[in-house]
Structure formats: structure tokens, C-alpha cells
Design a protein around this nucleic acid. Structure first.
Lengths: 257, 257
DNA sequence: ATCATTCGGTACGCAAACGTACCGTGCTCC
DNA sequence: GGAGCACGGTACGTTTGCGTACCGAATGAT
């Protein structure tokens, strides 16, 4: 499931996938950083509320306007939240990996999905029913606080992308996206076609191909038929706009309570 | 304070400024639609928690990273929430009028402002201390619910702007902004320089001038040295992208409980 | 009344990104 | 092994918007 990590991606990057503890560990670890940031008492029994679901690429998890039945806490899957415009174009408005959950609405006293979400990079999520989620929001102040802080980071990120889309180049945004996703899958390698990244960024497919070519030439990535490999994370970060670090910081902070 | 309404802007537009009741009315009305959507019991005594502050144009209300001392519920002022990029450019990531409040962070268990906000169109806000805000969040479930639903609409809007900035033209975005602001000030006339709108949209000043010229030619607006007048709202809406209606709908819905 | 400043109309060349298209290659499925 | 398809490299002309600059008009200050 997990690709061989590239030596240039530190396995303990703040937002990368934490190792899941086996039976030898005294403390349960879900693999999702938000849940794992809970105090032990508030994490207690959470394994019974989580169904581990393996999502395949492009599988939908939430539909705009639909009733939200469950909340997904990604482990090594990466989900995309998209907005669909009147002409049918979809643009990614948020990416969620092990540092967050889908959807934010659940923490805002709503049971209707305000956006459509789907699996961008295949992997596992911990799935919790909205009922259980609500019960925990009510019963556990630390749980509620953590979820709300995560929503804050989600809002912050969306706001950052507003500015990013207004001001930064296609190359910068491509690099940013790849950085963010590399952190989230916790691996230097993941599947992604130019076509899909183009849709997510709201640019041409050819534009992504050009950017990918540039990033390959400088030795930051390698691209082979839908499979990206991050060869040099530092170089990739250098090509990305500051939005990568800014958003990353927002999520790291949100986990600190 | 309120300019003569243009005949083409309905005075009872959903998001426009509601009339403030005088002593003749049995029910207190704050002039902010979120607060006024509260059940009478939960609105009780709120006038003692609100200080009516008149903001002048470009006056800051919240600074990124700063401690949040108060929450502002606009009455006829319009506030802008901006993101500042590494090169110093500021881009508007949210606009708040009588349909909302600043800042969302207060409803997400945070007392640190995650963004900078300032007054875009001069007018009044109802200012509540964070302490009182928190007390009401705890004491009144309807209050908390309303605030959280408002945050949901704020997040939705930010996400919409991500897609909007990726896909819509300067003309469409200018028209959208003017529509939104006209609703929020509840008047067909307000002060705004091309320069400022350009900064907010993240485009050139000259680009806004061109768009304003186009909108003037079709008879949608009139522009005179920092003073816009919406002559034909329907025409203006026609020039705007769908994001105007989409976001408007999100906020209207958020007020319904 | 005069002056300085703010604001917006307009224009120039330029760069980024667009829409589109064509084609080769690698993969998958018979 | 061959057919069909998905994917990406590349290229064309076009459009949009950028950066910049200049100027005149309206406004406000002295």
C-alpha cells in the first residue's frame, strides 16, 4: 500500500502519516493526526467508532447538498473537496489528508454537505458515523475543541488559496500541490495524472505538463504515466509559493490545542 | 448615513440592512441580521453587550496573529478580511456586512485572529467583547448554532472565491464584488476607489477601470471619483459570475437555523 | 484662488495562460 | 500479439491580464 519512501522526504514530517501502533502499544493510534492529538481519555474507545475504509482513486465520499452520513478521518488517503461552477468546471477548494477530516460541516452543526468530496490518492480513512461524531462533540470538550480548531485551519487554507489563485503562477501552484500531497500521503510517490491536477488547480492540462516538465528538469520530481515521485522535496518547496508553508503551519498549530 | 436608495435596488433585499426599530417596537433589533435571527429569548439583553461603533474607511478592526478583543457585527459598515502574501500584496478573502460577523475564529474556540480585517465601506458595527461572545456561545444553544452556521457560510464563500479567482474574468469578479457590497450596505451608493477594488480582487487598478468602464457603458453603474452608484442591479448581476448568487444563498440559508 | 494630491481614463509592449490539436508511447485487455 | 485507450509531450495562434506610464479632471488644503 505504501510506496518506498524517497530518502529526501523525512519520514517524520509533521503532517506525514504516523505509524499505526500494533497490539504491542498500550495506546491506540488511529493513524489520523487529529484523532491522535486527543488526550488518551478522549481517544478511549474511538476504535469502536471508526470503520477503516479503503478508498480507491476518484471514489466520492460526500455530495454537495446531500445528507452527511459519515465523517472521514484520512489515514493515508488524500481527499479533495471541490466546488463546481455553473459551466461544469470543478476546482479544488481544499485537500484533506491525515491532518484533517471531511467534512467541516459536521463540526458546524450541519448535517448537509456543503461541498462534494472524493478520494484523490487512494488509501485508507477512518470512517465515523455523524451520530457518533455528534455524540463525541457533545461529550468531549477536547474533541470538540480539536475539531473546531481544525475547521479554523481549513478556513484559513481556503482563504489562502483565494489569494494564491489570484496571484501565483501555475508552476508555483503545481509545486505547492505536490508538496502538500507528498506530506499527506507520507510518501514520495503517489498516483496523479496531469489531467486531474489541471482540473484541481483550474488550469489547462497542457499547463500542468509544462510545469511538470520544468520541475523534472530541475530534478525535483519524476513523472511516469500517472505516477509522481518527489525526488527532492527541498527543491520542490523552493518552486512552490509560500502558501504551502503557511497552510502547513496552520494545520500543525491546530493540532496543538 | 444611508444614501438615497436607487429605485432598482429593492430596499428589502434579503441581505440588505434591516431598519432598526425605535422605542415604538416591542422587540429590540440590532441591525445585524445574524443577531436579529436569534429567538427573542436569546436576543434578550444583547443591546447591553453591544457597543455601536462607527468605523471610518480603511480602519483596522483585527490584525493577523493578534489577540481578539472583540467581535464585530456590522450594521451598515462593510468589512474586508484579507490575506497578505509574502511579497506584501493583500487580497480580499472575505467580505462581511450585516449578514455576518468578524471574526469567525471567535466561534471556533480561538482568541487569536487568523486574518487581518478592516473597514471597507464606512458605517456602524455592533461590537461585542470576546468574553461576552464566549459566554453567549456557552449559555445559548441557538446563539452558538447561528454563529457556527455563519462560519459555515463563511467557509463556503471562501471556497467559492478559490474557484472564482481560478476561473472568472476580472469583469465578472468586479461585478460580483459590487453586487455583494450593494447588498451589504443596503444602498445603491457607496464609496470605493478603483485602486482599492483592484487590491481586493488581486488585479491591476487599470483592470478595474476597464471593467468599471464596461459596466458604466451598459448602464449598470455610475462611477464618480470614489463613489459608485448601482443604477441597474439586474444588469450588474448579469455581468457577475454565479458566485454572487451562490454565496448570497449560503448566507441566507445560514440565517434560517 | 492657487496648489498639491487623489483618482481614473487610456495606452503601450509584454508575459502568462488559454483553447485546441496532433501525435507518440506505454499500458491494458482481449 | 494486436487493438484500443489513457496519458503526456509539444506546438500553434489567441486572449487576457500584467506592469507601467502619462495625463487630465476633480477634490481638498492653504
Amino acid at each position: 500500500m505504501r510506496a518506498t519512501p524517497s530518502p529526501t522526504v523525512a519520514p517524520d514530517t509533521d503532517l506525514s502519516v504516523p505509524p499505526r501502533n500494533g497490539a504491542v502499544s498500550a495506546v491506540f493510534s488511529s493513524g489520523n493526526r487529529v484523532l491522535d492529538a486527543l488526550p488518551p481519555l478522549d481517544l478511549a474507545g474511538i476504535e469502536h467508532d471508526l470503520e477503516i475504509v479503503t478508498l480507491s482513486a476518484h471514489q466520492f465520499t460526500h455530495s454537495i447538498g446531500g445528507t452527511m452520513h459519515h465523517v472521514d478521518f484520512p489515514i493515508d488517503a488524500v481527499l479533495s473537496v471541490v466546488a463546481t461552477l455553473a459551466n461544469g468546471d470543478s476546482v479544488e477548494v481544499g485537500t484533506v489528508g491525515c491532518e484533517g477530516f471531511v467534512e467541516a460541516d459536521a463540526a458546524l452543526e450541519s448535517t448537509i454537505s456543503s461541498r462534494t468530496s472524493f478520494c484523490q490518492v487512494k488509501g485508507r480513512v477512518g470512517r465515523m458515523s455523524v451520530k457518533r461524531f455528534d455524540e463525541r462533540m457533545t461529550a468531549s470538550a477536547p474533541f470538540a475543541r480539536l475539531m473546531r480548531h481544525n475547521v479554523r485551519a481549513t478556513l484559513f487554507s481556503a482563504q489562502q488559496f483565494v489569494a494564491c489563485n489570484a496571484k501565483h503562477s501555475v508552476l508555483q501552484r503545481c509545486a505547492r500541490w505536490l508538496c502538500m500531497t507528498a506530506d499527506r500521503v507520507g510518501s514520495a510517490q503517489f498516483t496523479l495524472t496531469h489531467d486531474f491536477l489541471a482540473i484541481m488547480l483550474g488550469v489547462r492540462r497542457a499547463g500542468v505538463s509544462e510545469a511538470a516538465d520544468t520541475l523534472s528538469r530541475i530534478g525535483a520530481i519524476e513523472y511516469r504515466r500517472g505516477l509522481v515521485t518527489v525526488l527532492d522535496k527541498a527543491l520542490l518547496e523552493g518552486a512552490a509559493c509560500e502558501c504551502y508553508q503557511t497552510c502547513r503551519h496552520a494545520f500543525v498549530t491546530s493540532l496543538l490545542g
